[in-house]
Amino acid sequence: MSFIKPINHHPRLEQNKLGLTRRDYEGAISTLCAGCGHDSISACIIEACFQLNIEAYKVAKLSGIGCSSKAPAYFLNQSHGFNSVHGRMPSVATGANCANGDLLYLGISGDGDSASIGIGQFIHAIRRQINMVYFVENNGTYGLTKGQFSATNDLESKNKYGEDNLFKPIDLASMAIQLGASYVARSFSGDRDQLIPLIKGAIQHKGFALLDIISPCVTFNNHDSSTKSYDYIRNHNEAVGKTDFVPLGEEITTSYKSGSSVEVNLHDGSKIALEKVNSKFDPTNPGNSLSYIREKSEEGKLLTGLLYFDESSEDLHETLNLTKTPLNQLKQGELCPGEKTLEKINESLS
């Protein structure tokens, strides 16, 4: 038997406004381990792009090194892509974003790529508010090098060979809130009902959006003493509430109890609606979010959902007042303003 995905699809497969099916957003067949959480995340990205009617040629997929960073090959095979050096995806994203602000930037990274070798890059990408969606496919282990602990692995967790983890984990979501990221969410690869609206919200958000997604490593970190296994996450997951993404021009149809819901307008006019389960939680207040994450963590719970957002912040383009036209579309006349302008500039300097 060969490992081939047949090209035919269900004849009644749904089409989006572009006349495409979700199969049209797929990539090559995955070579990750069977059951890898990363594949579920790829499937959710496919679903989100399908539902948002995104044109694949207006997307750039950027990644570093690691199992996670292989994943862009497995979705949106008609999009642009750049597989960079280990931990250096944010620099490439920064450069690409400055040169062409028209594309949707999907950065795919892992806990090794972002929380260890690339942590400096990660921090500065947030600080600069690059308009991108930054996925951390977080499995708490170095799967590609046979299962050593990564920097996001929990203190009480053991590795597959029974050794204890001696260090406290880095919480990338809390870190991103502190650094000023304007959209921070955490989710679980095994919960697509939660993950897909969060991805859609992140794509429509203007500014830096971090999605810290717990993605179990079936080969090295899905054992009984792991804190990032399918079973452990299912038993310790506590969602801040149900998140809905509401496209532009559609009404919020779900009715929430008064006082329990938060709505936020995204820059394109679509909305995110969040039904909170706890009145103490305010996702628009960074201090409140941080303390709530910490509180739940001390209870042994993993807080998931949309943890923080701020739709008013400005992105790198606005801060640096960069041209709205992509550099590759600037004409000679715009790039070279002419002799008279040069003279004026020179005069102003004298």
Partner: peptide, 15 residues
Amino acid sequence: CIECDACVDICPTDC
């Protein structure tokens, strides 16, 4: 089954 959804994602005819 560990409900990883891998089968859902790979199924070419969405069964």
